[in-house]
């Protein structure tokens, strides 16, 4: 199931997934993380501070995107380093009561580098919302068997 170091090559695709996000997901993330900044759940507050509307926590997007890597690695503890820059906000429209997504984030990953000395693979994630990259230099370092 889990990949071994020897079978990997730079450029190899690790898969992709789409993450559907609703306002309720942002409320759940706020509660789970303790980040209650109202720009992530209150429209009037968000527009009042010159944002286009309610936006996802950058850390929600970062946290949800790495799940592709945890599942690929076979053990979330294999992710020994993970970093990103937040470049664009993910605007989440209010779809309460409809069952529709308020935003869809597309995540894909590929092996960007391999280090044989410490048996790690750097996975480079591409994270896109509304046709634009929302995370830049999103890199997870994975320790392999």
């Amino acid at each position: 199931m889990s990949p071994t170091f020897e079978e990997l090559s730079v450029g190899q695709d690790i898969g992709s997934r789409s993450i559907e996000v609703t306002r309720q997901d942002l409320v759940k993330y706020a509660g789970a993380s303790g980040d209650f900044n109202p720009i992530h759940w209150n429209e009037a507050f968000a527009t009042g501070v010159e944002l286009p509307g309610v936006i996802a926590h950058g850390m929600f997007t970062m946290g949800a995107a790495v799940e592709l890597v945890s599942d690929w690695a076979g053990d979330p503890a294999a992710v020994v380093d993970y970093q990103t820059r937040f470049t664009k906000p993910v605007l989440v429209t209010d779809t309460t009561g409809t069952g529709d997504a308020g935003a869809v984030i597309d995540v894909s990953g590929a092996v960007g580098a391999l280090d044989a000395d410490v048996r790690t693979a750097r996975v480079d994630l591409t994270v896109v919302f509304d046709g634009q990259k929302v995370l830049v230099k999103a890199q997870a370092l994975v320790r392999l068997a």
Binding site: S33, M59, D71
Partner: peptide
């Protein structure tokens, strides 16, 4: 909340099966 589904976050036996002492926290 981050839509993780790996059993090592939810099932103690699954986490121990991977050699961990208890549930593993997600990377973030």
């Amino acid at each position: 909340a981050v839509k993780a589904t790996h059993p090592a976050h939810f099932d103690v036996d699954a986490a121990r099966g991977l050699g961990h002492p208890d549930l593993v926290a997600p990377p973030t």
